[in-house]
Design a binder for these strands. Structure first.
Lengths: 355, 355
DNA sequence: GGATGAGATGTTAGCGCTCACAGTATGCAG
DNA sequence: CTGCATACTGTGAGCGCTAACATCTCATCC
């Protein structure tokens, strides 16, 4: 009587079936107390097998599923993670996000995703706070731009942040792929083939991966006493690669280009083809990422394969570590050099010109 | 005394700061009842401006944020949506997911994402149930494969499902891009240029988009009295395009190919280049999707641009419509033909051979 | 001046679950 | 057959919030 005017008509009941079963319904059907049902639900000991079976039968019969809201309310744990992915739907971040998502599901965590194209500090913070307000237990940030990282560094969110990023930041945990060594591999490959004039087309200056690749490129050249001419700065897009490719095409000393990603490498190839330069006859090109298309460029692109699958899993492993106060960082994975046909020894005549 | 032994030490307090403020803390500080705070929170009327201000001040001061769990428990509304994305991290689905995510956030909904590579019925169902268990109010499915759609059709989830898919299914709501008309546009373009022998490389037979494109291709050819030779069936990858490209290269009658996506078109181009066929000199090629790389293929690819931004928004609009029992489906968007240089009039000699 | 009523605010009862603790049954020593 | 540990199982409270209703305040009118 006092307990509400009858059955269960209420707001938001746009499906006809009655209110879902609760733990008490299960308890009643199984002839036990709700607490025993809870024990079965949480796999706690001290439940007689026969009782457990009866409860499980009742659960099945009533198609009972526990309410995550009620559970979260009392336990203060949501088993929910926030994922912020910035930038365009590019191959790298998309893959990382996908595999992270799978790894999280395997670990029985739910992921709330926030995709964002803007990475200004205000947007980043309000998005992070939005996630915190959802009581996520940790935030994973997949960000290419330095600004996205900075925006979340220093502010007190109340939950740990795991950044998938190529740079270190004070308060943030981090997983990353070793861009620096990857770039070294690229340059070593070209040097091994006999190239001495190795240009670089970099990613945007606000991209951390791009900076690491520049660093690896410059360091390797330096160690070999080779000139590191000013890198051309692109924006990851094929279009910017094309633009810089046109510039480079008129540089008669250059025999090879290390391009900071495969998409720009495509643009470079296109520019070279237009200019009548043959790849790898006149110029060798190395990309970065190994996107699925790279093997079918004209010619197939030598590039560095990144292990995004592993990266996604590392991110989840790191979350688990942080949440368990078990703070060890997985070692960064090093990209694999995939040699295809866009690289070869420099042509006789260009080498002569240079030396 | 009876009311708990003192302060608030409890499980899961692994951050040093005390338990977060509740509505009661705010009420006490503002000198009102918790109910008044709740009214302010939910923007209900009948609160004196002065009181409202005092409460807002207290909220700010305590950095209070309402608990979504508690709110969900009592209102039975979570403002949460489930998103299932199947398949590889391809450009189309990734973009759609991204823009859907943004649209959802704009509508103040939270999105729980489940990425999955497997689309067998069992996985699909258990994933959908996982989302339902999180009390999502609706599920959005971005699926290329028919199987993914079928797996969710017919089963009673208790929440509406909006499928981003090219085929209709009984119980599912749907948004889609008009693949059929897009394919017609592609073929019309080729016919307009004078091609009479227009081959097709299709996507995998389990892909709904692929089937629609085949349908559009065949219908258009039929209306013009042109032969529709058996399509070659790829798997969306550049590799499969390459394989079929090699086959087609030896077909001396064919003057043009409509390829079901840009990635395969890339493979085809690669095969043609190897075989010494010039594009568009010997053969014209039309792709589908307009991925960012397409403009920089060798040669730049004529293709159909799909409005994934709009599609993502349509998906969210449809969710809102369904949730508000306002069941109107947005009209499907038609892809735009983007003419680049991979298409031209057929060469004299090939035409002659054919006729 | 007291009835009237609208606006503002407070009180109480849950939502469905877990936690802490209080029971009740069972086994076996003494 | 008592005593007491060791299974099991039950009871009550309360997590933080909103819904429903109760109460209180004051201007307005007859």
């Amino acid at each position: 009587m006092g307990a509400g005017q009858g059955a269960g008509q209420r707001v938001g009941d746009h499906d006809d079936k009655a209110r879902a079963a609760t733990i008490f319904d299960v308890a009643r059907l199984a002839g036990v107390s709700h607490q025993t049902v809870s024990r079965v639900l949480n796999d706690l000991p001290n439940v007689r097998p026969a009782t457990r079976a009866r409860v499980e039968q009742a659960i099945k019969q009533l198609r009972y599923v526990p309410s995550p809201a009620a559970r979260a309310l009392v336990t203060r744990r949501t088993r929910t993670l926030g994922l912020i992915v910035t930038g365009a739907p590019d191959y790298g971040p998309s893959s990382t996000a996908l595999y992270f998502n799978e790894a999280a599901r395997d670990a029985r965590y739910t992921v709330i995703t926030a995709s964002m194209r803007e990475t200004d500090a205000a947007s980043m913070r309000s998005t992070a706070e939005l996630l915190v307000r959802q009581n996520v237990e940790a935030i994973v940030l997949i960000a290419a731009e330095r600004a996205a990282l900075d925006a979340l560094d220093g502010i007190e969110l109340g939950v740990p942040v795991v950044a998938v990023a190529s740079e270190e930041r004070g308060a943030l945990h981090r997983v990353w792929l070793d861009q620096y060594t990857g770039a070294r591999l690229a340059v070593d490959h070209l040097i091994g083939l006999g190239h001495r004039e190795i240009r670089h087309i970099a990613g945007p200056s606000n991209a951390m991966d791009a900076a690491e690749r520049v660093r690896g490129w410059a360091a390797t050249l330096g160690e070999h006493g080779l000139p590191a001419r000013e890198p051309l700065v692109g924006d990851w897009s094929p279009g910017s690669g094309y633009m810089h490719g046109r510039t480079l095409a008129s540089d008669s000393e250059m025999t090879s280009v290390f391009v900071s990603n495969d998409q720009m490498a495509l643009g470079v190839m296109h520019a070279f083809a237009e200019a009548g330069l043959s790849v790898p006859g006149d110029v060798s090109i190395v990309g970065f990422d190994d996107i699925p298309e790279a093997a079918f460029f004209a010619p197939p692109l030598t590039t560095l394969r990144q292990d995004f699958v592993g990266l996604g899993r590392d991110a989840m492993a790191s979350v688990l570590a942080v949440l368990g106060d078990d703070d060890r960082t997985p070692a960064p994975r090093v990209p694999d050099l995939v040699v295809r046909t866009s690289t070869a020894a420099p042509s006789r005549e260009r080498v002569t010109l240079t030396s």
